[in-house]
Design a binder for these strands. Structure first.
Length: 665
RNA sequence: GCUCCCGUAGCUCAGCUGGAUAGAGCGUUCGCCUCCUAAGUGAAAGGCCGCAGAUUCGAAUUCUGCCGGGAGCACCA
């Protein structure tokens, strides 16, 4: 029996006693963790609730402590429960039988539930969404790390997950870089390809070149009206396809996606499918969605008013005088579809509601053979797996897109009331901004006005941002320096891979410790730190825990387990005086709870905080107890078991955050 | 103007569907390596939880109003 099962059993018992003794039905019995181990392992504030309900029913005011006292004995019947105390104003505090609980945890350890992958429902997480016209910056990495960690969290909670990175390969951003190549660099496709080859020969990357070119185009637009005038024309050509400009744009976007996928792979972030906007257009996804909407009568054609000539989706305005104020235009008066319209069609496809599919071809194979597929207009690969048709779709998109996302969600739900709004989840998060100091450190001149601000938004257009690869390189260099200092005996390959694991851990944890709707004001010192609340701290705890087992004699772990199972009374007595060891053991049992809370709140930071807390608790334990030299055999067994539970739990929690545990560090 | 988010220690942030003495990291000061890795660890100092009201046994948490900061409200993409 694990913690959550035990918790549920006790909840039911509380519910039943409340019903029998007081004729009160409590739908959801709240359970909480007492603030200190001394106060118990689980607390039910149920007496307060009962007092309230009794007062409502009879007008009598009861004492919560007395009520709690009447519930106490029923819970004590459970064999996992050592005793129950009434504490504070009327808390019902449950103390577990420590030896039994430890035994159950050891047994349950490593026992993975057999998951029936055939019948598992599939969910989709779409993240990253970097425009394929430049290198990814740290803000994009926040998106991808949030998305990727959430994927891992969903998988840990038993879901099958499909990961998509939507490629806007026909938008203005790609068109702008195409304009840069064609009109500023005066290059044709062959020359671009040659440049690309030259760059990689020099160890430079195409996405970095595009980063600078994109900035240059943006700057030139400010003074060169002629160039700016090319935009509409180029964009149109790119959207249309089958022309030399579109071929150049396709080369640009494909190469940038390759670079971005490589960058993300360094962070341990992978994808299953890259659906591209060009296919949404050319395979007429919109037309199909449009027909469906017309048929179902959820959109209407406006013949007069300010939206005359447009197809709109009616929305209730939050308030206000004009009832059409919030209507969302999906088709413009010139007949073209808006971004929101395309998004609704794509969302319909993700949920299996469109009745059309992409064709697929192989895009890339990771080192271990795992494939990324990409959508294609032409006949696809017959061996491609099935994509789309997910039960729930999580879109990881920054909070500024909340309104359009709301429109997509409500729009799809309006077309398919059966599916409902719950199927579309906007996993929204705040941006990563730069402190004025960080922007200056990057070599940007900051206006006096901006200097007054607490943060400056990053801008791909201005080229203002910390590039993902640059930051990771810097972290790896710093980590390598530390590894050299500590473990000069390791081979250079081992040192490098350790430094890489530490660097990734540092950055992922840094991005995950903030809750989603907190603006991260990027600060180099903080992001580059390996001390305090960092990924490195968590990794270090796990590494130290593992090193105990390298030195433990063979069979040491098994012997410890035997001792625990064979001598429950001695173990219980010993543990009853060891609150600190005991609290570490109970903390390890709460990982599934942290994961399900993260899912419910779509908030990976909850798991990150849990992981840090566990690492901290282990460090305290490690500091206060000498495991290998402990002479009391019962205590030694418990110390070994606790350390083992911790390293397993910590490793698993970190893996769910996308952070590896190095061999040594 | 309307909508959403934020305001908690010097700084950066946690604080779950209301609960026990409001926490962490950084920074500051003073300690701890004969001992499983000091990327560690102990202690001290540091708080009208933006302000005012309401709800109740109980509010940092819920509601209302206000103040301050940010973002979003296009036939752009």
């Amino acid at each position: 029996m694990n913690l959550s099962e035990l918790q549920n059993v006790l909840r039911e018992q509380v519910k039943e006693v409340a019903k029998n003794n007081f004729q009160i039905e409590i739908e959801a019995v709240a359970a909480e963790v007492p603030p200190k181990t001394e106060l118990g392992d689980l607390a039910f504030p149920v007496a307060f609730e009962l007092v309230k309900r009794i007062k409502q029913a009879t007008g009598e005011k009861q004492n919560p402590r007395e009520i709690a006292g009447q519930l106490k004995s029923a819970l004590e019947e459970n064999e996992m429960v050592e005793r129950v105390e009434v504490a504070g104003a009327g808390y019902l505090n449950v103390f577990f039988n420590r030896a039994k609980f430890l035994g159950e945890n050891i047994k349950g350890r490593g026992a993975r539930r057999n998951i029936d992958s055939e019948n598992m429902q599939k969910v989709c997480v779409e993240h990253t969404s970097v425009n394929p016209n430049k290198a990814a910056h740290i803000g994009h990495v926040r998106n991808a790390v949030l998305g990727d960690s959430f994927v891992r969290i969903l998988r840990a909670s038993g879901k099958k997950v499909e990961i998509q990175y939507y490629i806007d390969n026909t938008g203005v951003q790609v068109a702008d870089v195409a304009i840069g190549f064609i009109y500023l660099e005066k290059m044709n496709l062959d020359e671009i390809i040659a440049l690309d080859a030259r760059l990689s020969a020099e160890g430079k990357s195409f996405d970095y070149f595009c980063w600078d070119l994109y900035t240059k185009v943006g700057r030139t637009y400010e003074t060169d009206e002629d160039l700016k005038a090319k935009r509409a024309e180029v964009l149109h050509l790119v959207e249309e396809g089958n022309n030399p400009t579109a071929v150049i744009a396709d080369y640009i976007s494909t190469r940038n996606v390759q670079c971005i996928v490589d960058t993300m792979e360094r962070f341990g972030i992978r994808y299953d499918l890259l659906p591209r906007e060009s296919e949404i257009l050319h395979l007429h996804f919109w037309q199909k969605a449009f027909d469906e909407m017309k048929q179902r009568g959820v959109i209407r054609f406006e013949s007069e008013g300010k939206n005359a000539g447009c197809w709109v989706m009616p929305f209730e305005a939050h308030s206000g005088n004009d009832e059409h104020e919030a209507d969302k235009i999906l088709v413009r008066s010139n007949g073209t579809v808006t971004y929101t319209g395309k998004d609704i069609a794509y969302q319909m496809w993700k949920l299996g509601l469109l009745g059309l599919d992409f064709n697929y071809k192989l895009f890339h194979k990771y080192d271990d053979g795992k494939a990324i597929w990409v959508s294609t207009e032409k006949s696809g690969d017959k061996n491609a797996p099935e994509f789309g048709a997910s039960e729930t779709v999580y879109n990881v998109i920054d909070t500024r897109q909340s309104y359009p996302q709301e429109v997509v969600k409500k729009g799809v739900a309006a077309i398919f009331p059966d599916m409902g709004e719950a199927a579309s989840v906007h996993l929204s998060y705040e941006m990563v901004a730069l402190s004025p100091a960080a922007a200056e450190e990057l070599g940007f001149r900051i206006s006096d006005e901006d200097k007054q601000k607490s943060f400056i938004e990053m801008s791909g257009r201005k080229g203002l941002g910390v590039k993902a690869d640059d930051l990771l390189n810097r972290l790896e260099e710093n980590a390598l320096e530390e590894v050299e200092k500590r473990h000069s005996d390791l081979s250079s390959e081992e040192k490098k891979s350790t430094a890489h694991q530490i660097a990734v851990g540092a950055l992922r944890y840094f991005l995950l410790k903030f809750t989603k709707n907190t603006v991260i004001v990027f600060d180099f010192k903080e992001a580059l730190s390996f001390e305090g609340e960092t990924g490195c701290f968590c990794q270090y705890s796990a590494v130290r825990a593992n090193s105990i087992f390298r030195k433990l004699e063979e069979n040491g772990l098994e012997k410890a387990f035997e001792t625990i199972f064979d001598s429950p009374s001695e173990i219980s007595e010993m543990l009853s005086n060891e609150n600190e060891i005991w609290s570490l053991i109970t903390l390890t049992s709460r990982l599934p709870e942290a994961i399900s809370q993260s899912v419910a709140a779509t908030e990976p930071a909850i798991l990150a905080k849990y992981t840090f807390g566990l690492a901290k608790a282990f460090n305290l334990f490690y500091h206060n107890h000498k495991i290998l030299t402990e002479e009391n055999r019962f205590k030694r067994a418990v110390l070994i078991a606790a350390a083992d539970l911790t390293r397993k739990t910590l490793t698993s929690a970190l893996e769910t955050l996308g952070i590896e545990v190095p061999e040594r560090m």
